[in-house]
Design a protein around this nucleic acid. Structure first.
Lengths: 211, 211, 211, 211
DNA sequence: AATGAATGAGCCTTCATTCAT
DNA sequence: CATGAATGAAGGCTCATTCAT
């Protein structure tokens, strides 16, 4: 018997064993569909195609698994490249960003992450805070930075770029996001989204375009 | 003795027996703190100072109790008078409304209702929809109507007043509401709220003021 | 103030205050429909048109109420006059008795008493025993006595008249009663009952008619 | 080692894992002692020596467990071989059958199944019906078939063999079964049972023996 | 006497977690 | 490492019973 076994060592520590990915996939679906409390470990195990026991090999408990899902979600958000190249003109950039952002939020099951995290923010404040910082605040900051660059270049005239960034993002959601997360309306059509983002961009630039 | 007997009216049927109010108060706190799933009927009973059985004398089940809480919340929202007198000028009206609206959302425990309802909107879509319609949509409509009056009077120039109303409301939340519901920041200061609403009003009127 | 009030005294002791009858009527229906465990005091109160508290004014507890029902049932059985006049000839008497007995058992809701009592005989043996003695055994004894009279008159030749009485009663139920109590068949038709009783009478007399 | 591994078969799926048998045994006792409503899952768990949760690993709910008990009972009845070889003479066959049948009904706890099922037949008609068909009706049919064979061979003269079969079975119970199920008498002695069956056989053959 | 609001014990069931294999 | 059987602590809900009015 020679060096056999080396490749089996510490497999659990690896962030990406296939079982782990498998579990995360199943858990993601179940958590997003049913919420933290509504999701049961049994359901997750079934959705992941593993045994309940295996869940606990990879994750300490239900909360740890949930937080891993959010981690994933955060990574996914991070990978959605918002093109904030300072060289691009503001109108196009904002429009493109608005599109991408709104699609992210309103994709089927897209409100779910926000909804799900919000739901437990009161009981698990750290989780809420962490998610906000890693996902929403980060996006605000990137946009804010982009805006600052254009302020510097004299293109835009903005006092509080963080506020402005947040304002633009809120404008993009106007009339669309809340009905969607409250299940009071189906996901918005492409056309409607375009109209809303158009309006947002116009209003935003109307206010902040340097004269 | 003249008015004798009035106090013998059977109170269970009344919307407002004191026990009922007592239960609603306890349930409100527990539901808002822990969410629908996190709240247990036992905890609620304890918080309300009644026995578990009594809960079921006044409410058919946990859901019914929860929905009664939301009803209450909706009534509370309805009672917050937003002064939409068409005679008032837009700037003042929007500023005042923004203040009231933001205070409503960011009062301690104020994000909780929204958060809590959002949380179960996936599993209980009717509840989500109902809440959205009775609380959020209703406010949008009132503001929208006000705006339409000023469009008619030539004061404002707005194409889509519903969208505009929603835009203003979103602008008011910019940089404040999300950190607050995600527990990533304490309730905003009065001053910061004033600033944000000011900025929102300016941007809004800049876009929609008739020339 | 004269003698007022006398008629209100000890009303509870009277076996027949109208409230008491009212309660018994409601309780009878509910107990027979749902069985001892299935019946709830609330349901009984509703069926009787009185408040739950009133139930406890007239009966110590659920068991006492149930036993009162059985008492009633026993009285009812006792009132069904089986014509055991020794002067009547055996064939007619048996046939008539068989008819009456089978109707008693198979009347809609008629299996219910037997079923209901049987159901709790294990947990409340006294109740079972008492019911058997007061209702079933009593009928056996009456028939048995009738048979003895005819044995004495040389009409019938029976060794064990108690056994014979029981045999006839069992024969009357053949193919009809069990399917009925197990809900495996609807209440038997008049004609089928007549046939079965005819067959029973013939077999019985064939065996016990004196030669 | 040759046959290794056989013991690793997953047993939950098997109809006969030892835990499953253990639960059925405990449940059987508790259900028969207390009836369906009187039996609590906690009591059953204790009687079976397993945790309450385990009950639900093997049976979907209380009803399913109960029906499994009845299934068992039906199987047990099915395994009691009534020797209905058409070649055997009627007197012996009936006598032997009567003995076996009566022992089945009057064994300690033997009335319990019938009693217990009867008890819920009103609220769960399917259960009652099923039990009747699988246990009682099946026995009637076997006996009926035997009788038909002897009618064919000219041995017996019977018009309605189903009725006749039922009649014989009822005759066997005469004076014994009802007092027993109502707890009004202890299980009958062997001698008394023999006498009653003797009498039943004589009466039956007296009526149906071909002349 | 009659009420019905209130109680709290107890029931069925679910589920996160553990552990022997 | 993977399994899934087993657990026991809750949870939602019902109901017999009590008691102030």
């Amino acid at each position: 018997m020679v060096v056999a076994g080396r490749e089996h060592v510490h497999v659990l520590q690896e962030e990406d064993s296939s079982k782990r990915r498998q579990i995360l996939a199943g858990a993601h679906k179940v958590f997003m569909d049913l919420g933290f409390d509504g999701a049961s470990m049994g359901e997750i195990a079934r959705a992941a195609g593993v045994s309940k026991g295996t869940l606990y090999v990879y994750f300490a408990d239900k909360s740890a698994l949930f937080e891993a899902i959010l981690e994933e979600e955060a990574l996914f958000h991070g990978q959605v490249v918002f093109n904030f190249d300072p060289a691009r003109d503001a109108e196009t950039t904002l429009n493109d960003f608005g599109q991408a952002y709104l699609h992210l939020l309103c994709r089927p099951g897209g409100g779910s992450a926000i909804r799900t995290v919000m739901a437990i923010a009161e009981r698990m404040p750290d989780v809420g805070r962490r998610y906000y910082m890693r996902v929403l605040d980060k996006t605000i900051n990137r946009l804010s930075e982009y805006l600052r660059a254009h302020v510097a270049s004299g293109d835009l005239a903005i006092d509080d770029c963080d506020l402005a960034a947040s304002q633009f993002m809120e404008l993009c959601k106007a009339s669309l996001f809340l009905p969607f997360v409250f299940q009071a309306a189906p996901p918005p059509s492409e056309q409607r989204m375009a109209e809303v983002i158009d309006s947002a961009t116009r209003m935003f630039l109307g206010a902040y375009k340097a004269k």
